[in-house]
Nucleic acid binder design. Structure first.
Lengths: 335, 335
DNA sequence: CTGTTAGCGCATTCAG
DNA sequence: CTGAATGCGCTAACAG
């Protein structure tokens, strides 16, 4: 049977002090005589007392909880973010309440749960947020930070890596490597990350007097990217380079090229990805890619959320963090 | 500035009913006249009212929250589990509070946070739990379920896949495929999963009158597994098969064999893993492995936790779920 | 079916 | 510095 937890009242009785004295012992900033504190702590230890965070939240109006919304944990990139974010917030005495939500409809119901949960802030990783929901959060004064997402609403903050310049670098790198028939494999159609990378890439090509040779859509999904690869390489003349909007798809491209089409990377086709997930460094792939500053992004998001929580102001800032090109064997200069 | 949320009291005033009437409208099982309910819901919508879950938890003594403790999210196997568990609990109106904890010392401090959080249950994924902490949870009547972990304490429940028979199958499969110099690559030294897989494997070999040709330790880590592979293959006569205690290491073995040692899989060396992570199916690897029933394991853990929460009894059950051999190209019969 | 009442466990006034 | 009193927002008896 579930026992009733020990309360501060019981500790107070055992220690021969008032309940408020006990409370003060567990509040960092309250003033309490060392002697009474010792008595109280002794009694607390004896009874196995732990302050009830729920009761505390009710009165302080702060749950010390951040709601994080994710759509996919199978992408290691987001898994890494989540792990790091959790550790980061833990350091500041906050904990993450996890919500999975794939489609926008689900997000609506999830958002309702979040609002009820009294989370002090919301961290959106890879999920879409309708502007009406965003508006509701802002109206309630709950700070929202989105990572690598765009939403057409003022109140929410955004942290992103410099997708445009990442794409731009890829374009330059491939042209300068001598590639002439460069294809782009997009992620999700409505994803801002994919379209920003694409735009930078196209602009780079244009500045070099080149153009994108072919495009396909891979939905950030392995199987879809494989199908797209087959389509891109079904003609007699096929691309001599593929820029995939993320590493996961780039891996799919390489695998399909090698296993099904008998093509060599980078001898026959150069391949570049985006993210620099751990797999990209594996010997089988040696994927040239653009590294996103995961930790810096999370640090920024953490600072934004905690800052807004502390000040009680929701501001809606935008931060763009620099990316780092990583040249590996899948697309080297002078190929 | 953070606005004070609207309370049931305010809704009651607007609707011209008592505060408890409002409360009943948001409790599924309470009886309320359809007419008053309509009035209340109208007022609630007008004010944008959401019940405060914190206040509810305080009085119901149930946070509808499960604490999950993880040590690594970079292993896709655990990431998948977390995602599925989150969705599963969400369906039942529970949410996950995420705690990251690598070493045992950290677990102690994390456990303190969990106890304060008033979580209704604890789900341990890939983390060690000292028996003193386990005892404290049980003493408080908080159900604990560990997945794929062993702890020397009565009160906690455990869900595991049948590691022994998985290892046993691998042993049989390799011997029957004609392999004669079979090596084992262990995970973490103190991990029960690794040692159970190993034991089943060794028993299978013994029953076929064979023995393990060599052993090494890969710590469930890519780089360590690579180093171990180099060591295993440094002699003139090298293994003709490697059983790695998980897929992640098996991938490292294959990559090292192909990229560094110029060996073919499975022609020169057969490789088998464990888990059946998504990568195992990729064309470059085609890894023969043993699939763990992730969803069934999580379903079982969910049922165990929710059942114990509902009954108020912590029982400490053990469940072992069957595994499924997956034969792919990296180790086929008759090689 | 509805309103009234009494707390849940704790932080925070306010006197002393 | 300490204790007594108050109430956070809500659910759960209890009468009506």
């Amino acid at each position: 049977m579930k026992k009733r937890p020990v309360t501060s009242q019981q500790v107070a009785e055992l220690a021969g002090v008032s309940q408020s004295a006990v409370s003060r012992c567990f509040s960092p900033k309250a003033s309490i005589a060392p002697k009474t504190k010792a008595k109280v702590l002794a009694a607390a230890k004896q009874l196995g007392y732990r302050p009830n965070a729920i009761a505390r939240s009710l009165i302080t109006r702060s749950s010390r909880t951040i709601a994080v919304v994710m759509s996919q944990l199978d992408n290691p990139f987001y898994a890494q973010m989540l792990e790091y974010a959790s550790r980061r917030f833990q350091q500041h005495g906050y904990h993450l309440l996890l919500f999975m939500s794939s489609d926008e409809q689900e997000t609506t119901s999830v958002m309702s749960d979040i609002l009820q949960s009294q989370a002090d802030g919301i961290l959106m990783l890879a999920a879409t947020l309708s502007s009406s929901l965003a508006k509701e959060c802002v109206a309630r004064g709950i700070p929202v930070v989105m990572i690598n997402r765009t939403v057409a609403f003022e109140g929410v903050s955004q942290v992103a890596s410099d997708n445009y310049h990442g794409g731009y670098w890829v374009g330059c790198h491939l042209v300068e490597s001598g590639c002439e028939r460069i294809a782009f494999l997009a992620g999700l159609a409505d994803s801002s990350t994919s379209s920003q990378r694409r735009q930078g890439f196209l602009d780079a090509l244009a500045e070099h007097g080149a153009a994108c040779w072919a495009e396909a859509i891979g939905d950030y999904d392995f199987a879809t990217a494989q199908a797209a690869t087959r389509a891109l390489f079904s003609r007699d003349v096929y691309p001599d380079a593929v820029f995939a909007a993320n590493d996961h798809m780039a891996i799919a491209v390489i695998d399909t090229l090698k296993a099904e089409l008998g093509l060599q990377v980078p001898q026959d086709v150069a391949v570049v990805g985006f993210d620099n997930i751990p797999v990209a460094a594996w010997p089988s792939y040696q994927l040239t890619t653009v590294q996103q500053p995961i930790e810096a992004m999370v640090d920024e998001a953490t600072a934004l959320l905690l800052g807004q929580i502390a000040s009680g102001q929701v501001t809606g800032e935008r931060k763009v963090l620099p990316v780092t090109p990583i040249v590996r064997a899948s697309a080297v200069s002078g190929t």
